[in-house]
């Protein structure tokens, strides 16, 4: 399931719900992304996430479908926020449920790696020194590439 939303989410409640999806789920793995304050000499004051409505949902649904093809998952949840966030606010929650832990662990990493390079979100940071658009990191592309390596 996909949700692109401005509002915060209750990670605990979402994780608990996925664990109870059916009687066969033996592993629920989650990742929560949180806004970092960053360097003490130039702290982040706030961050605004812009996205491409329509394409974002399509892209996240496609990533979920790819994960379900690779691993036997009983459930998947991706929640991504947009709008203005402050340090320590939650940005993203990815949860995968499976019978066994290996599938759930791997699926969450896969989902995050693909989300980072494919989902149309852009971060603009307001720092003490000024406002900047966040630049994409080459490590994110490498992290995604490991899933397609032979």
């Amino acid at each position: 399931m996909i949700s692109v939303q401005r509002e915060d989410f209750d990670a605990g409640a979402e994780i608990e719900q996925l664990g109870q999806a059916d009687g066969d789920t033996g592993a629920v793995v989650s990742f929560t992304g949180v806004v970092r304050r960053g360097a003490p000499d130039d702290p982040l004051l706030s961050m605004t996430l812009e996205h491409y409505p329509g394409m974002t949902e399509k892209c996240l649904a496609d990533i979920e479908a790819q994960a379900r093809e690779r691993w036997p998952l009983s459930d998947v949840l991706i929640i991504h926020r947009y709008g203005t966030l402050k340090p320590s606010d939650r940005i993203v929650l990815v949860v995968a449920a499976a019978q066994h832990r290996a599938a759930a662990f791997e699926a969450v990493q896969f989902l995050m790696d693909y989300l980072k390079t494919d989902a149309p979100f852009w971060k603009r940071e307001v720092r003490h020194s000024g406002t900047v658009w966040v630049e994409a990191k080459s490590q994110d592309a490498s992290a995604r590439a490991r899933w397609t390596a032979a």
Binding site: L49, H51, L115, K116, A119
Partner: peptide, 10 residues
Amino acid sequence: IAFFPPVTGG
């Protein structure tokens, strides 16, 4: 058609 910088979500 859409144009944008490399994405930076997550």
